[in-house]
Write a protein that binds this DNA or RNA. Structure first.
Lengths: 226, 226
DNA sequence: TATTTTGGCGTACCATTAACGCAAAATTAA
DNA sequence: TTAATTTTGCGTTAATGGTACGCCAAAATA
């Protein structure tokens, strides 16, 4: 039997919510193949590290962002997806809060940047396919887990949360029903701070109450926002 | 930099619905490590085959069952999960209809058998962890996708479907409401055949209408059985 | 004849959703 | 200074759908 000759890598789809739009973190390749194409951050797994550690290391080395949420997405293993050697890539799905959006100063050759998912460059390898799957995962998960809060600042306005949902789910939401629904879940903490953004009545700041959510989740509580 | 020395394997959690209970397909290992332990079917991926092909080949070689539903479950890559070399395993989730339950005659050393998920032997490696994740996936998916039909014979009784749901979801279901709900979805075809099983009025046979479901799904139809 | 299982009807109650009205607090325009 | 506009925050109500049942007839077996 022929000796197995397959490499194992990780790739990360890192989402950030910037300028009221969903953005994804990409790096510009400076080696062949796909030289000068934009690609998902990632790379080969080291012998002694776990897959998650590999993702965290690559993100640290290549982009400098701090991840707020990480989960495995899917593994891609078609022969031929990398023109050099066969590579099986375990893709991860990550979210970053605005506080952690700042990326590496591009002193080195590698360029790093946020791209709106609506204006993507051509991507290397099968990374567009991976990105699409991640977008679907985000869209679905937003409805039954409170991961939207990992895309917002720690303190946020209700209108921010609402805009996030309408943007990512790509549909209108009745503002008043949305507010009622979310508040009834009892997972937000109303802060004693108001913010005035341009015209209109100043809005209250809220915080996601992680502890309260963990408590409710234990009792089979269902987060469900459509 | 040290050369990467990690193997890539696939494992499959194959479910069958037998004797009104959920069963899983296991093979008995005849080599170290975990010699004589039961394990999930699987093995190393060949250089030229896709991950799905690897799963299908291993199942053919080791068990002889024909798969009716297959999807990727999760990848397990902790260093140390295999005591010999580092192995990253892409686990798959599979369903088999009763028509395809017959397994390999155990002429060779390898033993293959169906086990009720309620009476499992001790499993090799981290396979119990993988199996648990697959059970969760099945339980969840049963509620929002019509995969239960891939565990039943092509022609089935309503009482079979109901028992399947109560068994896997581990909760009681009101017979009348369940029937009403499923029939209202309009995805079953009522056959002109009746079956008498022991005492009681003979029951009608039904078939899952795959085409009709595909059509409805296009129009954003939601399968949702709780 | 009693019992069991299927198949079907109806209905009361409850929780959730959807649609919408309106006042309060700020800014901008007249 | 006042009026119009914008955004926030809170309420009301009708429609919908799920859940929990009761009831009964048909068709088989014990």
């Amino acid at each position: 039997m022929v000796r197995q000759n397959i490499k194992i890598a990780v790739d990360a789809v890192v989402f950030g919510y910037k300028d009221r739009n969903l953005n994804v973190l990409l790096i510009k390749r400076d080696v062949a193949p796909y030289r000068n194409y934009w690609a998902l951050p990632g790379g080969l797994v080291l012998n002694e590290e776990s897959l998650e550690q590999a993702v965290e290391r690559e993100l640290r080395e290549e982009t400098n962002v701090t991840i707020d949420y990480l989960e495995q997405l899917y593994s891609f293993g078609e022969p031929g997806r990398d023109p050099r050697n066969r590579v099986v890539s375990v893709a991860y799905f990550a979210l970053v809060k605005p506080e952690h959006h700042s990326i590496k100063a591009d002193t080195d050759a590698n360029d790093v940047a946020w791209f709106s998912v609506k204006e993507l460059p051509e991507l290397a390898f099968d990374h567009l396919k991976i990105l699409r799957m991640a977008k679907d995962r985000l869209k679905n998960k937003l409805s039954y887990e409170p991961i939207g809060f990992d895309l917002l600042a720690n303190k946020f306005l209700f209108s921010d949360l609402e805009k996030l949902y309408t943007t990512i789910l790509e549909k209108d939401i009745d503002r008043r029903n949305f507010r009622k629904k979310i508040l009834s879940l009892d997972i937000l903490e109303e802060l004693d701070e108001k913010v005035s953004e341009g015209r209109g009545r100043p809005a209250n700041l809220f915080k996601f109450n992680q502890k309260q959510y963990a408590k409710l989740k234990k009792d089979n509580f269902l987060f469900d926002i459509k």
